[in-house]
């Protein structure tokens, strides 16, 4: 039974769904920020928010990845103390590129194996996008220092391997979240 009878079940489902997404992003952001000092290898830490957005964008039947890309990027911007858009815009670009790839060039669903291959250029695009965006802010005189791509690239391999190692657990976690939404939330509000 719907708790708020004034709101239609479908609208309520939408609200619940996005609330769950938002809580998931907040949870992953907290995990990333809280565990980062303890998980560092060659100065690199896994990026759960990047992974969840990438994983979500490979499902060609689902447009909810935009929500993940936008909010994961914004949470990364604010948590890292960067200018708004430093991570959000590259993440949106990465997710758009993956979606176009999946929609236009792949007939079958993208599997974990392909996802691992996609992760490499995706992360490269994400990092260079962030450096480029930060450089624009530096050129505009808003940032005190120019971004150092060499510093990032020096430990980039460690970051990529770290994310690749966590891809499968994140893929499973994303699968559970989708199952939860499909089985319980949809059934509860009798929509679809």
């Amino acid at each position: 039974m719907c708790v708020f009878p004034i709101i239609s079940p479908f609208l309520f489902y939408i609200v619940v769904k996005y609330l769950i997404y938002l809580l998931s992003i907040i949870f992953l952001c907290g995990l990333n920020v809280g565990l980062a000092p303890y998980l560092r290898i060659y100065g690199q830490v896994p990026n759960f928010l990047f992974l969840i957005a990438v994983i979500w964008s490979v499902d060609k039947t689902d447009d909810d990845f935009w929500f993940f890309a936008l909010f994961a990027g914004l949470f990364m911007d604010f948590s890292a103390g960067a200018w708004v858009g430093t991570f959000a815009i590259p993440l949106l670009l990465v997710c758009l590129a993956i979606r176009l790839l999946v929609q236009n060039y792949l007939v079958l669903e993208l599997s974990l194996k392909y996802l691992a291959i996609v992760l490499f250029p995706a992360q490269l695009l994400f990092y260079f996008g962030s450096v480029g965006y930060a450089f624009v802010f530096y050129k505009l005189g808003l940032a005190a220092y120019p971004p150092s791509a060499s510093g990032w690239l020096g430990s980039w391999v460690a970051g990529f391997l770290y994310n690749a190692a966590l891809l499968y657990p994140m893929y499973i976690a994303a699968g559970y979240l989708k199952t939860f939404l499909g089985k319980y939330v949809v059934r509860e509000y009798k929509v679809r």
Binding site: N32, V33, G43, F50, A80, G81, S130
Partner: peptide, 14 residues
Amino acid sequence: VLSENSFGVTDAFV
């Protein structure tokens, strides 16, 4: 300190 180089790319802390 609210967060510290949490994503390994900014060399900054909030």
